[in-house]
Structures are given as C-alpha cells and as structure tokens.
C-alpha cells in the first residue's frame, strides 16, 4: 500500500513536470473537470516554443448533455493584466459560451463570449484579481470547443488602450531600418 501510494504520488509529480516541456493543451474530451467556479482546477499558462511574449494554454473540451460545464482557474493578478481569450466551437455541435470571471475582493467582473457552431471569437480583456473561466452550453445540448488563453506579460499591461488597439489592429508605425547605407563622405 505504502509503495503504491508513493508511486502514484511520484507519477503525478512527473506528469506535471512533463506537461511543462510540451505544448500546453488540456484535453477535457478525455475526462471531465468541475463546472464550479470555486473549485475550478488550476490551468497553468506556460511559455511556448516560438512565442517570445508571455505564456499560453489551451483546452479542448466538451460540455452539455450530462456535463454542466467546465471551469478553470487561470491565476491571480494584483494589477490589471491584459489577456487574450479565444473560443472556437465545433461545426457539428451546439453553440458554446465562455464566462470570464475576475474576483478582486468583493468586486466581481464578468464577461461572456458565445460562439455558434464553426465560429471563432477572440477577445482581449484587462482583468484584476482571481481569474477563472467557466465554459458551458447555453442550449444544454452537447457542445465541443477549443479555448485558448494567452497572457503576453507586463509589457502590454503598461500600455494605454490607444496604443494597444493600434498594435492589435496591425496599424503600427515601423522604422524600415535602424541602420542603412546612406549618402555622404566616408573618407577624407
């Protein structure tokens, strides 16, 4: 019994460590997590290969039928943090809805996103406090979804909205080159 418990504990620790090195997708289609916000499991956002800014995680899951929903706790932030939420619904299934809930003491802020079958929606939100997402099927029918969460980091939190919107819409000024061959005398 003692050995079994020790082995199981070691295995769970190794699994967590292993997940850190790979692509960060939680597959709820293979099992089910609670829909209760208060007991939502932690979904850790991780650095990804090829992504220089911030941390990301994703969930592929199914809700509806006998599943009331899925809830994930994303983390806690003492200052407003800018995050991207993307929700996609499978073409063959029912619409899906995602609630983003930020609890900062007694202040509770909720945002919802809903997508029809085959649609994808991305939303940037600035949130403070404990951040949890709850995903459900408004119709109660089976909905299959992909949800992705990206926190690009401090360098976006410190920007004002105008500046951020320009970057998001791709309307940024750029300098063609910081050093280029120019005209002029190089020799005496």
């Amino acid at each position: 019994m003692f050995r079994i418990l020790l082995f199981a504990l070691l295995f769970s620790i190794v699994s967590v460590a292993g997940a850190a090195s790979g692509v960060n997708i939680y597959m709820d289609i293979h099992g089910d997590v609670t829909h209760r916000e208060k007991s939502a499991p932690r979904l850790k956002l991780r650095k990804q290969k090829g992504l220089n800014l911030g941390r990301m995680a994703g969930v592929w899951g199914a809700v509806g039928k006998r599943d009331a929903g899925d809830a994930y706790f994303l983390g806690k932030t003492p200052l407003p943090a800018r995050m991207s939420f993307t929700l996609a619904s499978s073409k063959q299934h029912a619409p899906v809805r995602l609630w983003v809930i930020a609890r900062d003491g007694s202040d509770v802020v909720k945002h919802d996103m809903q997508v029809n079958p085959g649609e994808t929606l991305e939303q940037w939100l600035t949130l403070k406090g404990m951040i949890t997402v709850v995903i459900d099927s408004p119709s109660g029918k089976e909905a299959v979804y992909a949800a992705y969460f990206w926190y690009p980091g401090y360098s976006l939190d410190g920007m004002d909205d105008d500046e951020f919107n320009r970057i998001q819409s791709g309307q940024v000024e750029s300098v063609p080159s910081f050093a280029s061959r120019g005209q002029g005398r190089a020799a005496r």
Binding site: V23, I25, Q48, G50, L51, N52, L53, M56, G58, S84, T86, A88, T120, A146, Y148, W150, P152, S155, L156, E163, R166, I167, Q168, G170, V172, E173, S174, V175
Partner: peptide, 21 residues
Amino acid sequence: NPSFSSMLTSASKFTQAHSDH
C-alpha cells in the same frame, strides 16, 4: 480549428507587431 499551432502563429505575428511598434 483554430489549432494550437495556428494560435501560436497569430500570437507570434502580434508579438512581431508589438516589437516593431
């Protein structure tokens, strides 16, 4: 759809725009 890798690709484009800006 979008896959995780296409999410990473669009995030990388955003990152590039952020760096250029």
